[in-house]
């Protein structure tokens, strides 16, 4: 299981790649593994605002469904449109091609975990 060092993580298994006032958001490798073959991703639209800790969409596999929670607050400035036709990118490349949305951050990100902390959390849930 990969947990890149440069990212921040939420307890609900999203990651955020923060660069200045923007952040790219996705779900972790651990989460995609748990869900299995992803068949559909529902995302907010460009221009929508998302709030840290609040629902921002959902993700479905054949046998499971999960809500997506925004790790940071802000305005959506891009969504990964490729996922509409190829949701499998989330399985294949959770931290790169399988990114979900990009937001312009408002406010300070809070309560996010470091890679090490997240790896511990994931290990404790993996039973």
């Amino acid at each position: 299981m990969k947990t890149p060092e440069n990212l921040l993580y939420s307890k609900s298994h999203e990651w955020a790649d923060i660069d200045g006032d923007t952040a790219v958001i996705g779900i972790t490798d651990f989460a995609q593994e748990l869900l299995g073959d992803i068949t559909f991703v529902e995302l907010p639209a460009v221009g929508d605002t998302v709030a840290a800790g609040a629902e921002m969409g959902s993700i479905e596999s054949v046998k499971a469904a999960s809500e997506l929670y925004a790790p940071v607050s802000g305005e959506v400035i891009a969504v990964n449109e490729a996922l509409e036709d190829a949701p499998e990118k989330v399985n294949e490349s959770a931290f790169e091609d399988g990114w979900l949305i990009k937001v312009r951050i408002s406010g300070e990100p809070k309560d996010l975990l470091s890679a090490t902390e997240y790896a511990e959390l994931a290990a404790s849930e993996d039973h």
């Binding site: 068949t39 559909f40 479905e60 596999s61 054949v62 046998k63 499971a64 469904a65 809500e67």
Partner: peptide
């Protein structure tokens, strides 16, 4: 198919 819509997976949602 598309069972993620249904009660046995999504329960209250």
């Amino acid at each position: 198919t598309l069972q993620a819509r249904e009660q046995h997976i999504r329960r209250a949602k």
